[in-house]
Design a protein around this nucleic acid. Structure first.
Lengths: 183, 183
DNA sequence: TTAAACATGTAACATGTTACATGATTAG
DNA sequence: CTAATCATGTAACATGTTACATGTTTAA
């Protein structure tokens, strides 16, 4: 590895967990619930992964056990070293865009299908996007009046989702027209 | 697993390879080059993965070796069974949208940064998107006059990329304004 | 003659998913 | 008392990346 490309992303699960711990100590179980909430739309994690990552980060002193409760419950808090790591990731590591889209991969092979099936595929994608847009709109209504920094930036992310689902619908409509023109 | 959720995606590398083989037999090395071409924008694969997947698919009779050349070169062709599998994937399996975005994950934690650094982050994203847009525009110019089904659907996918990079820029600009309003 | 391109394969490691295994506490 | 929820952890497997290992052919 050259000196210039010390821009190794990956490990985002680690930073997601660290980020969640900035709003206060939590157990693995608590974090799992949060990963099933609004964050789930931008990053998912399984129970297995969370417990493993917490243990690993405790070893590396990025988090520490601050309390033990009933049923073996362990509450973790972020350490100064953890905050430093998170800060570094936020400000000095460029997020690399996802390089894989099964949806677009299929578009590359749409010539293998008869045109009407190609159109059906695009209509299906537009439809799925419309449903997603509706779901996000519902969430947007629910969080409209929530106050605080977390809600504020959550709405910023939500707006991205709204725009992205609109994009898919418009693009699919446009593509359908192109295919019809070409047929 | 319930009977209703037999919609197990995954294995897209397999279908990418199968799809590429529909335009004629190719060796692992040939396929690697194609994965470095236009397809790279929607699906990436390493040399290691490609050779492994070809061997596995040969075992399962989805592809077969049709010729051997110099330097141990093996040309693979898709079989009828392979075509069937590809057809099934194209028409009956819904592509599941990517559930992880390091870029948006960071947005969720933007409250940890002073507002000016948050704005800097968004400006950086807009900037990266602008560069991507320029790169895609260049490719669009190059393939503008290419004929054939493959080029046609390649342009459809390209248009998605163009619209997506515009979306990021517009969204980042909007978000920046929101942050300034809130400060 | 030698560097680049062709060509395949394996091993080690990182990451992510599913399933298994265990048990405590609480609410009805 | 018993089902749901809380709570943690491990094992097996799938997927993806990087590095290692090897050897041939072609073009300058």
């Amino acid at each position: 590895m050259s000196m210039l490309e010390c821009q190794d992303d990956g490990m985002s699960l680690r930073h997601a967990v660290l980020g969640m711990l900035t709003s206060g100590p939590a157990s693995g179980y608590d974090l799992l619930k949060r990963f099933e909430g609004s964050i789930a739309n931008v990053w998912s994690a399984t129970q297995s992964q969370i417990y493993g990552e917490l243990a690993r980060m405790a070893d590396e002193a990025l988090v520490e056990v601050v309390a033990e409760g009933p049923r073996g419950r362990k509450e973790y808090a972020i350490t100064d070293q953890g905050r430093e790591e998170l800060q570094h990731w936020m400000t000095e590591v460029d997020p690399e865009p996802p390089r894989r889209s099964a949806m677009l991969l299929r578009v590359f092979f749409l010539n293998l299908l008869p045109p009407d099936q190609g159109v059906a595929y695009l209509r299906r994608q537009a439809d799925l996007a419309a449903h997603q847009h509706a779901a996000l709109t519902k969430i947007a209504d629910e969080v409209r009046d929530e106050v605080g920094d977390e809600a504020f930036y959550g709405r910023i992310a939500l707006e991205w989702g709204l725009r992205a689902s609109t994009l898919i619908q418009e693009w699919a409509d446009w593509a359908e027209t192109e295919i019809r023109k070409a047929t």
